[in-house]
Simulated scan of single mutants.
Amino acid sequence: MADETNTPVFQIQRMYLKDLSLEQPNSPQILLEQTQPQVDINLALAAEGVADGIFEVSVTATVTTKVGDKTLFLIEAKQAGIFEIRNLPQEQVEGILGIVCPQMIYPYLRAVVSDVCTRAGFPPVLLSEVNFQAMFEAQQAQREAAAAAPTIN
Results as ranks from 00 to 15, higher is better:
115 D>A: 12
39 V>S: 11
63 V>S: 05
3 D>P: 00
11 Q>Y: 04
31 L>N: 13
113 V>P: 06
4 E>L: 09
124 P>I: 13
152 I>P: 01
59 V>G: 06
150 P>T: 10
104 M>Q: 11
44 A>K: 08
67 V>Y: 02
88 L>Y: 10
110 R>W: 15
66 K>C: 12
75 I>R: 01
120 A>H: 09
119 R>L: 07
66 K>L: 01
28 P>W: 02
51 A>Q: 14
129 E>P: 00
44 A>I: 02
65 T>M: 01
139 Q>W: 00
145 A>G: 08
92 Q>E: 13
152 I>A: 07
99 I>C: 09
23 E>H: 07
141 A>F: 07
66 K>N: 08
74 L>K: 11
73 F>H: 14
10 F>W: 03
143 R>M: 15
69 D>P: 10
7 T>K: 03
68 G>N: 11
45 L>G: 03
90 Q>Y: 09
48 E>W: 09
124 P>D: 09
117 C>T: 15
122 F>H: 14
6 N>K: 03
86 R>L: 13
143 R>W: 05
142 Q>N: 04
39 V>K: 06
80 A>P: 04
46 A>D: 14
19 D>M: 00
47 A>R: 01
43 L>M: 05
122 F>V: 14
39 V>R: 05
42 N>H: 09
14 R>E: 13
101 C>G: 06
29 Q>P: 00
57 V>R: 03
104 M>C: 01
145 A>I: 13
47 A>D: 15
113 V>A: 12
96 I>P: 10
25 P>L: 01
3 D>V: 08
128 S>I: 02
69 D>G: 07
35 T>E: 13
75 I>A: 08
35 T>D: 15
106 Y>S: 01
103 Q>P: 02
135 M>N: 14
76 E>Q: 11
105 I>Y: 04
68 G>C: 10
128 S>K: 09
94 E>I: 05
130 V>G: 04
118 T>G: 09
86 R>A: 09
24 Q>P: 00
72 L>I: 13
130 V>I: 15
80 A>R: 07
128 S>W: 06
30 I>P: 08
117 C>P: 03
27 S>W: 00
12 I>Y: 01
82 I>L: 15
105 I>R: 00
140 Q>M: 15
88 L>S: 15
132 F>D: 15
75 I>E: 08
46 A>T: 09
20 L>T: 14
45 L>A: 00
21 S>P: 05
116 V>S: 10
117 C>F: 11
54 I>C: 07
80 A>Y: 08
47 A>C: 03
79 Q>S: 12
73 F>I: 14
13 Q>I: 06
74 L>A: 08
40 D>P: 02
119 R>M: 11
33 E>G: 00
111 A>V: 13
53 G>H: 02
152 I>M: 06
50 V>K: 04
119 R>T: 06
118 T>Q: 13
84 E>V: 07
124 P>Q: 11
146 A>V: 13
126 L>R: 09
79 Q>T: 15
114 S>Q: 08
54 I>A: 08
107 P>F: 00
19 D>R: 02
54 I>Q: 10
66 K>Y: 06
21 S>I: 05
18 K>F: 10
30 I>S: 03
132 F>G: 14
7 T>I: 04
138 A>W: 01
51 A>P: 02
65 T>W: 01
60 T>K: 03
42 N>D: 10
134 A>E: 14
44 A>S: 12
81 G>Q: 05
153 N>T: 15
107 P>Q: 13
152 I>E: 12
9 V>E: 04
149 A>G: 07
